Computed example of a mutant assay.
Amino acid sequence: MNGFTISDWDDAYENGRNIPNGSDWPGVWVSPAQKFRDQGRNRLDIPYGTSERAKYDLFLPEGTPKGLFVFVHGGYWVALDKSYWSHLAKGAVDSGWAVAIPSYDLCPTVSIAQITTMIGAAIDHAAGAVAGPIVLSGHSAGGHLVTAMMCEDTPLSKPTQKRLRHVVSISGLHDLRPLLKTNRNETLQMDMHSATAASPALQRPLPGVRMTAWVGGGERQEFLRQTQLLANVWYGLGCDTRAVTEPDRHHFNVIDGLADRGSPLTRAALNDPDEE
């Protein structure tokens, strides 16, 4: 990294145009997501707030769940909803866990801080429906949102915090200040104060919660850096952290492992370290 300077910040955080056939996503997720909703044991569109998008889907295993697994989608806080990702619940459901996948309001209608509060409310609501330990996972902007749940200023209730065991940020954004230099900020509407306040890498983590930062080996350099950044900083603050680079994965297919109970990603998320 010595001597490396970013001249085009929009390109540094652009995924679709830098991935072969990148325009295929998110469309390729629609069919498998719908198929999983159609054939699984699920409860759809559970409201956790007052807005139209304040709903989550809950996917249930056979028998009593081992705990609650939550997946928070990405889309740079400005796009997509829970319907694209249902199939990613399969790995955890097949492992005996209940899985909640929430939607949330989007920028610029709301701020990133307000979205963070919404995700906390969604997790609290789902935690009221499913007993046991809680594991959180999120992709891209969703990675930011789940790591915000284990910051000291978390919006999660105290009872939910006590059940939180592990947070897995997949291709997450953990320092939002670089996004101030991108055209995306016209929609995100952050300033230096709000970007700093919303950056997990600049906050202190909750004690007793493990954090894994996971990224594809073929991702943009900034996503690789953001992954190492959080693991490095929080390790220095006493957090049990891991940084994992999965070979031959780009920003969109890096989450595919969540659909497979035997994948390294699902096993790392749900198992204790000595069980992996």
Rank of each mutant, 00 (worst) to 15 (best):
V130K: 03
W97I: 08
H73K: 07
D105N: 12
G91R: 10
I134W: 02
G132D: 13
G67H: 11
R53V: 12
E152L: 10
L145Q: 10
L68Y: 11
W85L: 07
T154Y: 07
G142I: 04
V78T: 07
S86C: 11
A127W: 14
E62M: 10
V146Y: 00
S51Q: 06
Q39L: 14
P102E: 06
R37Q: 11
L44Q: 14
L44C: 11
V78E: 09
S103N: 05
T109C: 02
L60H: 08
S140Q: 14
I134G: 05
M149F: 02
A141S: 15
K90N: 00
L88K: 01
R43H: 05
C151Y: 06
D38I: 00
V72W: 08
G75C: 10
A148D: 12
L44E: 11
D38K: 09
G74S: 09
G132P: 13
H139T: 13
E52N: 07
V72R: 02
K158A: 11
E52H: 12
D105F: 14
L44S: 08
K82A: 05
A148G: 04
A129W: 02
A141I: 06
H73G: 02
I112Q: 03
C151M: 11
D153K: 08
G96R: 08
T116H: 09
A122G: 00
R37F: 10
P61I: 09
S86R: 07
W85A: 01
Y76L: 02
T50M: 15
T147N: 00
S51F: 08
L80D: 05
I123K: 04
M150T: 10
W97S: 09
T64N: 06
S111A: 04
A141V: 14
K82E: 00
W97Y: 14
R53K: 14
L60N: 08
P102H: 02
A98E: 14
P108C: 01
I112D: 04
L58C: 09
G143I: 05
S140G: 14
V70N: 04
I101Y: 01
H87D: 07
L58F: 06
T50D: 14
A79W: 03
Q39G: 15
G75D: 11
A54W: 05
G91E: 11
S83T: 14
S86M: 12
S137G: 15
V99N: 06
P102R: 05
T147I: 00
Y84G: 02
G74K: 06
P108Q: 00
F59D: 11
G63P: 03
A79C: 01
I119N: 01
A141E: 15
K82L: 05
S83A: 02
G128C: 08
T154M: 08
T64H: 10
L156V: 07
G96Y: 13
C151S: 15
V93R: 00
A121I: 01
